[in-house]
């Protein structure tokens, strides 16, 4: 374990089984949401995670927070294997890692006031009510909201303001790690920049570590130190955000980036995401082969024989593609 890694993920797997039909005659379909994923998140860095819809980004983050249990594999947080902890021991770690969701309004309890929403984590960990109230005011100020309005309900606030509330709540327990699951995707472009600024400022001020999920490579390039690229549950490429954006190595990243650049005329991320979903859709090959083999223009014989491992091709760059595997 390297001292500078806050989180180490090793060989994480998760398949979802969806049951359909009634009691008898039940059919099951299985999706591999996360496939053998290993990664490190260093203390104090912003790690970006990009990929099309359904590529397993949220599932990966949820397993890191142990909101869902992995099928196999390990998440080590500050050296401690989270999977080995009892529920009670896990409670202690919950203080240290929090989550911010894509849909800000949905992530707040609609029938609780803003103050009640933000103070809940504090009360959970035994902060006296009066102290919690004062802390809520501090937190709301920290995210740029007027604390005197905290008796209001979430629906009275705009999307960007709700996201600020959600961020305040996530910071209440003074965590060191935030899993930001597309925190700006649901917001207007003009608001996106504000929230990203806020997150960036908070990260520096409070010395936080982020796992930042996005559809949008451009945002990730601006906001994140390093980036991982996911496709159908696999990590295809990692590297510094700048490098992944400037010089994409993996054919998927190139195509993905191409779709983003293609629509640069009007930089609507949804369109880019839609195009990316097209890339997701067509490949339906199973078994041992490169996950991208169905869409890859550079595909050759080796690609159908086995899945390429994620190997380091130059300093800090890892790519899972046989084009770069010269062993």
């Amino acid at each position: 374990m390297s001292a500078q890694n806050l989180i180490e993920v090793r060989d994480l797997n998760k398949a979802f089984t969806v049951r359909r039909g009634a009691f008898f005659r039940r059919t099951t379909a299985s999706t591999k949401a996360v496939n053998n994923v290993s990664l490190d998140i260093r203390k104090g860095e912003i790690l970006g995670c990009v990929g099309g819809s359904g590529s397993g980004k949220s599932t990966l983050g949820r397993m890191i927070l142990r909101l869902i249990e992995p099928d196999s594999g390990e998440v080590r947080y500050d050296g401690q294997n989270l999977g080995a902890l009892s529920q009670e021991e896990m409670r202690g770690f919950r203080r240290r890692m929090q989550i911010v969701f894509q849909d800000p309004l949905q992530s707040l309890n609609p029938r609780r006031t803003v103050a009640e929403n933000v103070e809940r984590p504090l009360l959970n960990f035994g902060t006296p009510k009066a102290v919690a109230r004062r802390r809520v005011e501090e937190l709301l100020e920290l995210v740029g909201l007027d604390p005197t309005q905290s008796y209001r309900y979430p629906h009275e606030y705009s999307g960007g303001q709700c996201q600020r509330i959600a961020i305040a709540r996530a910071l209440a327990l003074e965590p060191e790690f935030l899993f930001l699951d597309e925190p700006v995707s649901a917001l207007d472009v003009s608001i996106q920049a504000q929230i990203l600024n806020l997150l960036g400022d908070l990260q520096k001020k409070l010395d936080l570590t982020f796992l930042f999920v996005s559809h949008d490579l451009k945002i990730v390039k601006q906001f994140c130190d390093r980036t991982i690229v996911m496709y159908r549950g696999n990590i295809l490429e990692t590297g510094s955000s700048e490098a992944v954006y400037r010089e994409p190595k993996h054919p998927f990243t190139r195509d993905f980036l191409g779709t983003v650049l293609h629509v640069r005329g009007d930089m609507r991320w949804e369109q880019a995401a839609e195009r990316a979903e097209d890339l997701e859709g067509t490949a339906k090959l199973g078994g041992a082969c490169c996950p991208y083999v169905g869409n890859c223009a550079d595909c050759f014989d080796a690609c159908r024989g086995s899945a390429p491992p994620l190997i380091e091709i130059e300093n800090q760059r890892n790519v899972a593609c046989f084009l770069y595997d010269h062993r």
Partner: peptide, 26 residues
Amino acid sequence: ELAYIEAAKAMATSDLKILFVEMLPN
């Protein structure tokens, strides 16, 4: 299925509180 319930889990809210403090009013 809503995100605020998952948020409640992430902040170590007990099942009882999730049901009777978070969900009940809804």
